[in-house]
Design a protein around this nucleic acid. Structure first.
Lengths: 117, 117
DNA sequence: GGTAGAACCTACCAAAAGGTATGTGAGAAA
DNA sequence: TTTCTCACATACCTTTTGGTAGGTTCTACC
């Protein structure tokens, strides 16, 4: 009954990290600076257009930094800012919850899809 | 370097709690069983159509229970399941992160909107 | 000379999510 | 008797999000 007075900040968090790909991008950037093409390969299944959009959003929100190494052919990498790292920290429990409950959730989702077909 | 082998479960979590309203709904249900109209009032700004959709999704995923008190006029309430409570727990750090950084994020968002206009 | 790869951009499209407006049936309050 | 409330349903529309398919500019490799 002491958390009730705390206004819910989830709208703020989700305005940054909501969407289909952003959490995965952040996850794969924990390792350190990563080049565009490598992010794409690691995340897997994302189109280049969407990946750039998301990366730019995250840069605008000061979660990532983009470094252009001024080379030809282009050499660019993205990494977490200190601010971004605090966000990743806050995401970890949710990440772990998802990992723990992956099977359960998959089963539940499947059962509702079965009803439709 | 020990979290790297853990697959990211955020896709699972967000498949349940993603979207504009679900986190807020869960937040306002922490107090206990709440009637449909009360949820609507507490969340504020949500349309009835969307609210029912979200509530039903959450019930399907075993995060909430719906109790129909078989009365006329209708008396229905929603509350967290034990499973749902574990999810809310995992959401708290993200909630607090959002609360801590609300001002910062608002400023960043505003500055990018300013550029557009 | 042709191809591949780097990090993007652009136009166009499809799907999903969210929102508005209106209707329902029955009791309770005016 | 009209109006209100409850907990929805339904049709329709707009916005947002994501995806596809092309192109660009330059170097390196075969």
């Amino acid at each position: 009954m002491d958390r009730m007075d705390t206004p819910c900040g989830l709208d703020v968090s989700l305005s940054i990290v909501g969407g289909k790909w952003k959490p995965l991008i952040l996850f794969h950037l924990q390792e350190g600076p990563t080049r565009f093409a490598d992010v794409k390969r690691r995340v897997g299944g994302i189109s280049e257009k969407v990946l750039i959009q998301q990366l730019r959003d995250l840069v605008e929100m000061n979660v990532l930094v983009r470094r252009d190494h001024q080379r030809v052919p282009p050499m660019v990498d993205y990494s977490l800012t200190p601010f971004g790292r605090t966000l990743v920290e806050a995401l970890i429990p949710l990440c772990e919850w998802g990992t723990r409950n992956r099977a359960t959730v998959a089963k539940l989702s499947r059962s509702t899809i079965d009803m439709e077909t």
